[in-house]
């Protein structure tokens, strides 16, 4: 494999990291049956506050923690409004999307063109020497990239291979049955919404402390939150497919901007700008058309058992619904 291609793939892994982290966070939240629609605003506000905290303290780590707290706080509003105040998750999430983004723009106004701490670039010993995978995944990345890779496996293992993960799935699929078996449904929904929210905040930090370091008005990451939400659907609420979706998306985006820069290929700019959104509709169409399920049924029976979780496209059955514990 030539070096140039490996470099492109390496950049791709970096640039898709916030999408991976945010989409994994949202996957955990939605697996518990709660929709956190606020991603586009949450990521933006977390990025702003993370950056401001990092500038103020001189430490990127403080920035990361601040960003995660912001993401968790926004998630807390959603889950309190849902469980305690019986308000619609989607309505609250939408209001918070706009509110958080405006807030980010307001408090960020004096931080444009300010240079702040940035995450260091590190390579992992041993792992970086693996052919192909090493240079792409384990060389010259910011630490959040490695955390995102770890998160993919940890969330998969947690959701599908542990007892608490089974409870998580039960809460999202059949909350009444889970409750009857003694699971504290709403407590788990609090937990996973906050956990998911803090990961969404982490994604914001990945932008403002590394990938799009600094702050600009209008914020550079606007729109990506919606894409992360779409990736969760494309990913069928399965961490492996979610990460695949994020890489696929970032890859197509990278290709389109490479084409844009290349003088040989004349593709109208309008098509390039439209591409991410056409892709978003296209991927959702692919999922809703049942093409993935049909693919599953074409496989031999033994493979079906193995791939069932990976290829399903139905949302958690109780997604977006409220559960009364009584």
């Amino acid at each position: 494999m030539n070096e140039e291609l490996l470099n492109i793939l390496q950049t791709l892994v970096t640039s898709s990291t916030p999408l991976v982290i945010a989409a994994l966070g949202e996957t955990l939240t939605e697996r518990a049956g709660v929709v956190n629609l606020s991603l586009d605003g949450s990521i933006t506000l977390a990025a702003a506050i993370g950056f401001i905290a990092a500038v103020g303290s001189g430490s990127a780590l403080v920035g990361i923690i601040a960003a995660m707290v912001v993401g968790a706080l926004i998630a807390l509003i959603i889950v309190v409004a849902d469980i305690e105040l019986k308000q619609d998750q989607v309505a609250i999430g939408f209001v918070l999307t706009l509110l958080a983004a405006s807030l980010a723009q307001f408090i960020g106004q004096s931080y444009t063109r300010v240079r702040g701490p940035e995450l260091p670039f590190v390579s992992l010993t041993f792992l970086k020497d693996i052919p192909i995978l090493g240079p792409v995944f384990f060389t010259d990345h910011n630490p959040l990239v490695y955390i995102s890779l770890l998160l993919v496996f940890v969330t998969w293992w947690w959701i599908f291979r542990t007892r608490p993960g089974l409870a998580l799935r039960a809460v999202g699929e059949r909350p009444a049955s889970a409750f009857a078996r003694g699971t504290k449904v709403n407590r788990l929904r609090y937990l996973y919404t906050l956990l998911g929210g803090s990961l969404v905040g982490l994604a914001g930090a990945a932008y403002s402390l590394s990938i799009k370091a600094g702050w600009t008005n209008p914020p550079a990451m606007r729109g990506d939150g919606w894409i992360a939400l779409a990736i969760v659907i494309f990913g069928g609420w399965h961490p492996f497919r979610v990460v695949l979706g994020a890489y696929l998306f970032a890859g197509l985006r990278a290709i389109s901007s490479a084409i844009q820069r290349s003088p040989d290929i004349q593709i109208p700019l309008v098509l390039i700008n439209a591409l991410p959104w056409l892709l978003m509709i296209g991927t959702l169409l692919l999922v809703s058309s049942g093409a993935i399920e049909r693919l599953l049924r074409a496989l031999p029976r033994s493979a079906q058992v193995w791939t069932r979780n990976l290829l399903r496209s139905d949302p958690p059955a109780a997604l977006g619904t409220r559960f009364e514990e009584r």
Binding site: I77, A81, E84, L85, K86, Q87, A91, I92, V95, L96, L98, L99, S102, L103, Q105, F106, Q109, N217
Partner: peptide
């Protein structure tokens, strides 16, 4: 010399808190 987004912040909080008050 303040960013206009302040007005959007105010409106966002009004709607959010109205919804929360309804729930309350």
């Amino acid at each position: 010399q303040l960013d206009q987004s302040l007005a959007e912040v105010l409106q966002g909080f009004v709607v959010l808190l109205v919804l929360m008050a309804n729930g309350l």
